[in-house]
Write a protein that binds this DNA or RNA. Sequence first.
DNA 1: TTGTCAGATGTCATTAGATGACATTATGTG
DNA 2: CACATAATGTCATCTAATGACATCTGACAA
Lengths: 229, 229
Amino acid sequence: MGEITPQAAAALPGGEPAVALADPGPGRRQRKKQLTRDALIEAAMELFAAKGYDRTAVHEITDAVDVSERTFFRYFASKEDLVLSFVRDGATAFAEALAARPPQEEPLTAARQAFQASLRRLPGDTGDVASYLSVMELIDSTPALLAAYLRYIHDHDHEIIRVLAEREGVDPATDRRPRVLAAMIGALVFLANRDWRAGGDPSAEAMSAAFDAYAGEVTSALSGHWPAR
Amino acid sequence: MGEITPQAAAALPGGEPAVALADPGPGRRQRKKQLTRDALIEAAMELFAAKGYDRTAVHEITDAVDVSERTFFRYFASKEDLVLSFVRDGATAFAEALAARPPQEEPLTAARQAFQASLRRLPGDTGDVASYLSVMELIDSTPALLAAYLRYIHDHDHEIIRVLAEREGVDPATDRRPRVLAAMIGALVFLANRDWRAGGDPSAEAMSAAFDAYAGEVTSALSGHWPAR
DNA sequence: TTGTCAGATGTCATTAGATGACATTATGTG
DNA sequence: CACATAATGTCATCTAATGACATCTGACAA
């Protein structure tokens, strides 16, 4: 558990920090910032994995990277925000992937395909599903993070809604269908995700299977008077 | 904005506090505790309404009731927890109402009826919908509360799932349908709630209409290739 | 190269939420 | 009344977060 100087820290979830960091100071300066950011994320995730999110203080993270505590909060709006940086990247990738699906595809199929596609372009092009799963695991097992995660999803629903409305050529302001569908997709991805993780098989096929298992039950679930299993 | 002594404070959302408060010291002691709890809730909600949740410090609440700050945290696990006490009561009432619906009823209809029924038995038998709406308004407009709310719903999904599974006579551990349905109901109630509030009509009919407007679109939304409006 | 400006970081102070430890007061009971 | 215990107060401490201001460092032009 050595120090993680900004010089270390490989390619980590990029994306803009939640706290706007002014405009791109050209060249080296910008690179240093990225290194610091990456180092903070790496150190934090290591500590979270080792001792848990709640039992890791911000100063422990900044000590490991050798920056001041204040600097941490210049990169991340909060401790939660650091973890959410992964979620932001994932949500963005998902929204883009969904927008790229052919409109004639059934909505839930499109969602599943989009989710798979988004997994492949997560960290550094490597389909590093393992790290995604571990982050989700961390979130799911940490009340504070779960709350922040759910709120993030809630707050950014509108992006998915917009994409869905566009796919179908309706107005999201007046048509309730994209809202309903977005909520359903969110729930299904969430449920499938958990089963997927619990299954222990990180393959894309396992993810598909988990998603389809839920998607296939939706209509039946809604109708009631369920046929026995 | 005067003091709210424990002697004031009418019947407020009861239920057990999140922090277990040992067993029922009989008689007066218990009554005093309830009064203090009610006074804290009343003072807090008044301050939240006046200055907003974030800008209200715990010591302001305890000052108004004239107890120590430490005492607050003996009654409520956190500042959020106080607001969630309303949500807890509501969720419990909803779960009970849902369990009471006839099993042959369509699930979404049962959910709507249960929600209406739960509204009627909220504060002190008076169908005081206005206070429910204002609490939801507060939650919805306060990021920290919204996150806590969403997590609460998430954490207590299993109660609804259990009721649904029982209604239909299936095993919630192996059957995905109650899980899917619970998620859908949660989403629909949430969406309908917002439209209902936005509509400005606090009547039960308006609530029903908002719910049905969403429920009626679910099947269509899922199928895709939406017919134009 | 050097001087200047701006962006990035460090330092310090402060607020607020939350929790543990322990003393004090109040209440129920024999 | 006296005792046991529950409820509360007091005090100390931790952590997250934020504002203010000083300092350092990379960017860039003369």
